[in-house]
């Protein structure tokens, strides 16, 4: 089941702050998407609007062609797991899972049981007595077992230790393969999860910075290193995201794919070309200095 998600000119104001500032993009659905942005870039706000947790102050959201806010047909197909967890703190773990089963028509309770065991969640403990990692794991169970056609994790896995996070990645891939649906994972720590994404949406200050296939983005950054004046001449006219200087040597990060003749020219001029990791590209695209 694939539900397309379309966001156009989306705005959300909190008093003086524009958490979302004219954000537009389109997701076909049925893929694993990475939503990347720094802290405070508007990731949680965006996901909260998509999940109908709050209403935007301007612009449009369409999920499967319809506005999600207070739309029963759309809302029951969406599941957002926020880092803080939208569960009742005094409830037992098993009560939380039972509640999801009672309210969600797509819920798979056997799968939930299996996941809860895998993540060592004690069913007879209350939510407030869980460790941070266990709370995150509870969120993972709620999200995966919801089998919601649009399932979103808002940094909800960052509180877990490495083995649990890897268990989450494994479960995510396995369940996505068995039951294809739309997943959106938001994060500001990219290196570890990037290989899970098919497409990546980068936002900053409530605006879209990039929306690309992850592999396309990986090919998009080039670092150019060499003598200051040679680098400057070469980089003139290119999109430079960031630069560093050490004595007479300069390194710039160029956004975009170089043409073969550009590569040749760079080598002729004695410049060193290198790849840029997705994480570095993200840092450059969203840093204060990286105003394109």
């Amino acid at each position: 089941m694939t539900l397309g998600i379309e966001v156009s000119e989306l705005r959300l104001r909190f008093g003086e702050v524009n958490a979302l500032d004219g954000l537009s993009f389109r997701l076909d659905g049925g893929k694993i998407y990475g939503l990347l942005g720094r802290n405070g870039s508007g990731k949680t706000t965006l996901l909260s609007v998509l999940a109908a947790f709050r209403r935007q102050t301007g612009g449009q959201v369409r999920i499967a062609g319809a506005e999600p806010f207070e739309n029963a047909a759309v809302m029951r197909q969406i599941c957002l797991i926020r880092e803080s967890g939208d569960v009742y703190e005094s409830d037992y773990v098993r009560t939380v899972l039972r509640t999801a089963g009672e309210l969600r028509s797509t819920w798979d309770s056997e799968y939930a049981q299996r996941l809860a065991e895998r993540f060592n969640l004690p069913p007879r403990k209350t939510v407030q007595s869980l460790s941070r990692g266990q709370k995150s794991a509870l969120g993972i169970v709620l999200g995966l077992a919801s089998r919601a056609p649009v399932t979103m994790f808002d940094e909800s896995y960052l509180g877990m230790d490495a083995p649990s996070r890897y268990a989450f990645y494994d479960e995510l891939l396995a369940d996505y393969t068995a039951h294809p649906r739309t997943f959106i994972l938001s994060t500001h720590l990219i290196e570890e999860v990037a290989s899970l994404f098919e497409e990546v949406v980068i936002i900053d200050r409530g605006r879209l910075v990039a929306h690309e296939e992850a592999d396309v983005l990986r090919a998009r950054g080039v670092s150019v290193t060499g003598p200051v004046d040679v680098v400057d001449t070469f980089a003139a006219g290119l999109t430079v995201l960031g630069e560093q200087r050490l004595g007479g040597t300069k390194a710039v990060t160029v956004y975009g794919t170089l043409e073969p003749e550009q590569v040749r020219a760079a080598k002729m001029a004695g410049l060193e070309l290198g790849p840029v990791s997705l994480q570095d590209l993200f840092v450059h695209l969203t840093s204060e200095a990286g105003n394109r």
């Binding site: 893929k31 694993i32 494994d170 891939l173 396995a174 393969t177 290989s195 098919e198 992850a214 592999d215």
Partner: peptide, 17 residues
């Protein structure tokens, strides 16, 4: 493709490509 994706923890569509 799916075994490969699961084994290396990568997106199945990427592996398929």
């Amino acid at each position: 493709t799916n075994q490969y994706a699961a084994f290396y923890r990568i997106n199945p569509a990427t592996a398929a490509k």
